[in-house]
């Protein structure tokens, strides 16, 4: 457990340096909480990709909290901000299901890290002693299948693939059949990256979802949107459109967090869409995909 916390903190070190240090510096320059200080905090939040509306909301909340506590002491501000931001993220338990196999569909725009996330998730479940089957439903990108196969081998997971360019729904059909036959615990479906504005590609995604549903009632149990942690406000649009197309997302996997001094988009998504973050990727190693824990995340930002 301690190791996990440490890795999270190390992974978020950059974010923290950008965020907490700058807040602290701002706080240090003031002897009381006033509008000027709040404006400085506002600008720091904006530079962390939190977004205009969410920033304003956090600042309003901060002001209210200061009034409630009857404090004008800048030293209290860090705590108030931490509370406010933790509240926005809330808690997000994994959707419960005791069905076997558990079917997880991974979606997202190009280059967000879907294939890598699929691989890491497979390793994670395999590490828990589960029998994992991976479906290579990204039949579009050149060599995506090979990339995923490398991950499948590392995770010692079963692997279902078709030819490059074949119908992804057919791959998923085969994977579902195989999962039942081989008594798999978890099926992870890696889909092709697509910009959410491409209606025909979103249709293809809906078809993949329908295919799993036809093979097994209740599937897919999870639809995870993979988001690049360095993405700006467009992440909101991605989350909204994917969610609408697929009848809701069960969660978000936020990747490349170790690479960015940002990650603030998580808060915007929390405020606007209420879609919980389920996983965060904080490193390139196979074990660097962690379950998202909102209080720990916020604490890691501040400590």
């Amino acid at each position: 457990m301690l190791g996990v916390v440490r890795r999270l903190r190390d992974g978020l070190a950059k974010t923290r340096d950008g965020f907490a240090r700058r807040i602290q510096q701002a706080v240090g320059r003031y002897d009381r909480i006033d509008e000027d200080l709040l404006e400085e905090i506002e600008s720091i939040l904006l530079q962390t990709d939190v977004g205009v509306e969410t920033t304003l909301r956090i600042i309003d909340g901060l002001r209210d909290r200061a009034v409630d506590r009857r404090t004008r002491n800048p030293d209290d501000l860090m705590d108030l901000l931490r509370e406010e931001m933790a509240d926005i993220l809330g808690d997000a338990p994994a959707p419960a299901s005791d069905q076997r196999p558990r079917v997880i569909m991974i979606v997202g725009v190009n280059g967000s890290g879907k294939t890598t996330t699929a691989g890491k998730m497979a390793a994670r479940y395999a590490g828990e002693g589960k029998k994992v089957l991976i479906a290579a439903a990204d039949t579009f990108r050149a060599a995506a299948i090979d990339q995923l196969e490398v991950w499948a081998r590392r995770a010692e997971a079963d692997f279902i693939r078709h030819q490059h360019g074949s119908d992804p729904s057919a791959v998923v059909y085969d994977a579902m059949q195989a999962a039942t036959a081989r008594d798999a615990d978890v099926v992870i479906i890696d889909t092709a990256g697509r910009l959410h504005t491409r209606d025909n590609l979103m249709e293809e995604l809906k078809k993949i979802k329908r295919t799993t549903g036809k093979q097994m009632d209740g599937a897919p149990h999870e639809v995870l949107l993979v988001l690049d942690g360095t993405t700006g406000q467009n992440a909101l649009s991605q989350a909204r459109v994917f969610s609408e197309a697929l009848g809701g997302l069960t969660g978000i996997a936020l990747t490349k967090l170790d690479g960015t001094a940002r990650g603030g988009i998580v808060f915007a998504i929390g405020v606007h869409l209420g879609i919980p973050v389920r996983f965060i990727g904080v490193g390139e190693g196979i074990e660097d995909l962690q379950e998202f824990d909102a209080p720990a995340f916020v604490d890691a930002l501040f400590n």
Binding site: D49, D228, T230, T231, Q233, R262, I265
Partner: peptide, 12 residues
């Protein structure tokens, strides 16, 4: 550079 990058784009 990914055109969807947020505030970090300039740092990169």
């Amino acid at each position: 550079v990914d055109g969807m990058t947020g505030q970090d784009a300039v740092n990169v």
